[in-house]
Amino acid sequence: MSGLRKLQQAFADAVFTGETTALAQTVRANGLTGPRRLQVYRNNMFVSLTEALRAVFPVVEKLVGNEFFAHAARQYIQTQPSTSGDLHDFGGSFAEFLAPFPGADQLAYLPDVARLEWAYHEVFHAADHEPLALESLAAIPAANHEQIKFALHPASRLLQSPYPILRIWEVNQNEFDASDEGKATIDLDAGGVTLLVLRRELDVEFRPLPPAEFEWLRHLATANSIGVATARAVEMDPDFDLDTVLMRHVTGSTLVRAYL
């Protein structure tokens, strides 16, 4: 199928670059010209992939405006093409793409907002999971408690930013009531956020966590034992209360499986 592969390669190149003259020779003119016909496919591709990004990154679009978003999306589609037949997979590197992108680079918080929206997207579609069975925890001998490891809910992500990205996300929701003066203004120097993005059943929730609690979960998420995770958390915050935090994340389904 080398002939077919060559044609498809040339077709894809023409659609991506807009250089349709050479390929147009292989297309029947029949009324409209070859370049005009190829232009339809070029347009379709950019529109459908831009729509896919728009669906995942509505707050980014609101922050930069429709026109700039379309411009950035176009560059992104060209430089980091889709690699899946499932459009839901497209956009995972959009945050990294935006960071140095001319025009967006002045909005230092923009990539982190994009990361938040991608986390929301992933968590929305991730697997369901039963809550942790408390008996499984009780069955582990006390002598081994320090060594227990936990699996986090498949529909959970940990995200931190030096910017108040949750506030930015909230005030840019369509249902946000901006009439309450002062609420809609954001102090970018207000400080960052350490966030748990979690879907326990159907709805995705954002939960800001104290930094030590975030650090504790981050260690558990990378398969460190609860002993190691707690030691790190206590270093950050001597008042870190393991019992309360553990109970909160077990009953709240952040932690869904315990193992040694």
Binding site: M1, G3, L4, R5, L7, Q8, Q9, F11, A12, V15, Y41, N44, M45, S48, L49, A52, P81, S82, T83, S84, G85, L87, F90
Partner: peptide, 25 residues
């Protein structure tokens, strides 16, 4: 139709040349 070449996806339903070779493929 086809929508990808060398792992790059156009995410569209693109037409094939209607030949014996592509038919067999």
């Amino acid at each position: 139709s086809w929508s990808s070449v060398n792992g790059r996806y156009l995410n569209d339903l693109l037409p094939l040349p209607y030949t014996e070779a592509t038919l067999e493929h």
